[in-house]
């Protein structure tokens, strides 16, 4: 099973997780910029976070044979803090970088005026930098938040096939499908979405324009939920080909719209030492201190 996790916060995960993910077949990930649990108080804190996503985390993933990409944005929670608003001025620089495959996570948290302003500006930035968009939907009042999200996407005029609306469930998936956007599902160890419900949604609506992620971060989560969903699909009678369609080819198609996926090493089947070698000097893992 070949897996591309289209939404996972690896900064919060351990090397054990990277090893388990590689063993399960994960070969590529996208790490969206989001909140860190502890609210940030300055723009400089975002600079270091974004640099970490494009620098250290990509290097760390490569050492485990996983191609790491990022999406960059000011997230909806911190969009409400005037001290963080200057992050919008940093974005044009970051949205030009290799391996930045979308603007995200943008969208709503508490449906404030500030969130809407920042959301609209970032949709415009996606157009200016020719990038797709990853939209987070709120955990509270999700149905209303999802409808408002789709209205704004339509108003700004961004092509729906360049937008994924994430963290969906049985109640919110249909409006997103009707709008022509991609549907994103975060499969968690608790009730937000689980493997069995995910399989029923796939049986009902089909395998097109859908991406499944583990969204794993520092909260209770499981970085192997993509793999577990693939297993549940097989148990329900889907073929290996179907699983590959959902867990690999769909994320490649969506993020491939950026023209910035870095999958050469993965496609070549290089081992992780070879992967690192391609980006710098050869490594001899035996010599690791």
């Amino acid at each position: 099973m070949r897996i591309f996790d289209p939404h996972i916060h690896m900064t919060s995960r351990t090397t054990d997780d990277y090893e388990a993910m590689h063993d399960a077949g994960v070969r590529a990930v996208v790490e969206p910029a989001f909140w860190l649990g502890q609210p940030r108080t300055s723009v400089g804190s975002f600079v270091d976070y974004f640099d970490g996503l494009l620098g250290w985390e990509r290097f760390r993933a490569a050492q485990h044979g996983i191609a790491h990409h990022a999406t960059i944005a000011l997230n909806p929670k911190e969009a409400n803090d005037p001290r963080c608003r200057g992050v919008l001025d940093l974005l044009p620089r970051y949205l030009e970088k290799d391996g930045v495959v979308a603007v995200g996570e943008v969208g709503f948290d508490s449906m404030t005026r500030e969130e809407e302003d920042v959301f609209v500006r970032q949709l415009e930035l996606a157009g200016e930098h020719d990038l797709p968009v990853l939209v987070h939907t709120p955990h509270r009042d999700k149905a209303a938040g999802t409808r408002r999200t789709l209205e704004i996407v339509a108003q700004v005029g961004i092509a729906p096939e360049r937008v994924v609306v994430d963290h969906l469930n049985e109640v919110t998936v249909d409006v997103v499908d009707d709008a022509g956007c991609w549907a994103g599902f975060s499969v968690y160890p608790d009730t937000k979405m689980d493997e069995a419900r995910m399989v029923r949604i796939l049986q009902r609506r089909g395998l097109e324009r859908v991406m499944i992620n583990s969204a794993a971060d520092w909260g209770r989560s499981d970085p192997l939920k993509t793999w577990r969903t693939g297993q549940a699909m097989l148990a329900a009678g889907f073929t290996e080909h179907d699983v590959d369609h959902v867990l690999w080819r769909n994320p490649v198609a969506f993020y491939g719209q950026s023209g910035r996926l870095l999958l050469d090493d993965v496609d070549a089947g290089a081992d992780y030492a070879g992967n690192t070698l391609q980006r710098g000097e050869p490594l001899t893992p035996a010599a690791q201190g």
Binding site: L283, A286, Q288, G289
Partner: peptide
């Protein structure tokens, strides 16, 4: 370099 496995030819 020795610690992180970079050949000393670098």
């Amino acid at each position: 370099c020795l610690f992180v496995g970079i050949p000393l030819t670098a």
